[in-house]
Design a protein around this nucleic acid. Structure first.
Length: 423
RNA sequence: GGAAAGAUGCCGGAGUGGUCGAACGGGACGGUCUCGAAAACCGUUAUACUCGCAAGGGUAUCGAGGGUUCGAAUCCCUCUCUUUCCGCCA
């Protein structure tokens, strides 16, 4: 959620930047400003009214103390009209407050200055490409066939138990999952992150805080009876750790890493896009989250991106880093780097991580502040990134490292799997 | 699931209709003292909205929402949560 004060003072430049994101409902900016002006007007009237009521109440109290009962009784009548007015003004005010928020939450975050214009994924900027794309033989298999060959995971079995997109990992396939999770967590801890194990189900306030509600409601599994949501990413419970907090500036940055399963309903597309592990409803992910001083969020973003890159290097996977264009960025992000690994058998890039700076977009919703040197409260910046999401890493790992002797496990992962080949 | 008690500021804890944004204690911060520290003493110590160039005002908030009243932390209703006991249980 953008800060209303920013809109108030820079409406035109806000619109220019929203245009980079191809924001279509530019009229919302003017609408919210109109509501805001109205709201402040009503607020002033209400406050003045209440101030008068308070003053009269105090006088009545004094009169009673002096024993002037008749006079006091008379004064009581003065407030009747004021009370009636206040009631109406209060109703009007809360209506306007609701309206203002309702509009505000529909305006996306402003893209940072370095975000390229563009509408589609093709217009994302390739910042870097590295790692060797192995030359595989014609008989190289896509990961879903490898999974069958080595009995690593079973999607049909998941269909029986739950439905499409809920894989059952087995044997070395299961061990590989566990190994990757530990590997990612250990790397994060080494980089100074504090490991947390959050709830996998959150309430509405938390889902709202990170921006999943209201606009991504359909993407989450909803537990209607209790008004809970299954988390689509650990970002939600972890970032909400600091919701409604005023943090000590000296304690910044806060760095959290969390493993969690992730649940996504997303109505998928068809065919190759969703084959195998390319897109599933339940998957495992290690997420890193930072809560930082606003002056440092962009250098932290680079630091987090470097962390993710380090993981991909250790896994010996060919990858590339994209700076997302305005049209491809998420609603809440100010700048996003996507990481993709090359799936050799499928001959395409698969997104495995997204590292974003949200600036104050989330903290404004969640009211996460810190006290600066002048003792003023200011909103923090929040960032997060996948480090990493497992299914496509597994897909790429299986495909890129397949050999005639089985699937080779990268050296960095061996201590975690306990085996160096899947045969 | 059954029963009881409770929810007040950074923490502990008082306050049961009027001057209470809230006693008192602790903590933290600033100052005096000191070579420095401790102790002692003095002072400061909520958030949000809003008016104002500013100084400085106004309003709201004592778990949440509603109600009674000229006036509510204090009375009434609803909800949520916490603690303890019992039951059940990985």
């Amino acid at each position: 959620m953008l800060e209303i004060a920013v809109l108030r003072t820079n409406a035109e430049s806000v619109k220019q930047r929203l245009a980079v994101k191809n924001f279509k409902e530019m009229n919302l900016v003017d609408e919210v400003l109109a509501v805001d002006e109205n709201r402040r007007n009503i607020q002033k009237q209400l406050d003045d009214n209440l101030a008068r009521q308070n003053a009269i109440a105090k006088e009545i109290g004094d009169l009673f103390k002096q024993g002037k009962k008749d006079e006091a009784e008379q004064r009581k009548q003065e407030t009747a009209l004021l009370k009636e007015d206040s009631k109406n003004l209060e109703a009007e005010l809360s209506k306007l407050e609701y309206e203002q928020r309702d509009i505000l939450v529909r305006i996306p975050n402003l893209p940072s200055a370095s975000v390229p214009k563009g509408n589609s994924p093709e217009e994302n900027e390739v910042v870097k490409q590295a790692g060797e794309i192995p030359a595989l033989s014609e008989s190289a298999l896509p990961h879903w066939d490898l999974a069958k060959k080595y009995d690593l995971f079973d999607l049909e079995l998941g269909v029986k138990i739950t439905g499409a997109g809920f894989p059952v990992y087995k044997g070395k396939g299961a061990k590989l999952q566990r190994a990757l999770i530990s590997f990612f967590l250990d790397n994060a801890i080494e980089a100074g992150y504090t490991e947390v194990i959050p709830p996998h189900i959150v309430n509405e306030d938390s889902a709202f805080g990170t921006g999943q509600l209201p606009d991504k409601e359909g993407q989450m599994y909803h537990i209607g009876l209790d008004k809970f949501y299954m988390i689509p990413t650990a970002e939600v419970p972890v970032t909400n750790i600091v919701r409604d907090e005023i943090l000590d500036e000296k304690k910044l940055p806060l760095k959290f890493a969390a493993y969690s399963p992730c649940f996504r309903r997303e109505a998928g597309s068809y065919g190759k896009d969703v084959r195998g592990l390319n897109r599933v409803h339940q998957f495992d992910k290690v997420e890193i989250v930072q809560v930082v001083h606003p002056d440092r969020s962009y250098s932290v973003l680079e630091e987090m991106a470097a962390h993710v890159e380090g993981l991909l290097k250790k896994l010996e996977l060919p990858y590339r880093i994209l700076r997302l264009c305005g049209g491809d960025m998420s609603f809440a992000s100010a700048l996003t780097y996507d990481f993709e690994v090359y799936s050799t058998a499928q001959k395409r890039w698969l997104e495995v991580s997204s590292v974003s700076n949200f600036e104050t977009f989330q903290s404004n919703r969640m009211k996460v502040r810190f006290r600066d040197e002048n003792k003023k409260t200011r909103l923090v910046h929040t960032l997060n990134g996948s480090a990493l999401a497992l299914p496509r890493i597994v897909a790429s790992l299986l495909e890129n490292h397949q050999t005639e002797n089985g699937i080779r496990i990268p050296a960095a992962l061996k201590p975690y799997t306990g085996f160096d080949f899947i045969v």
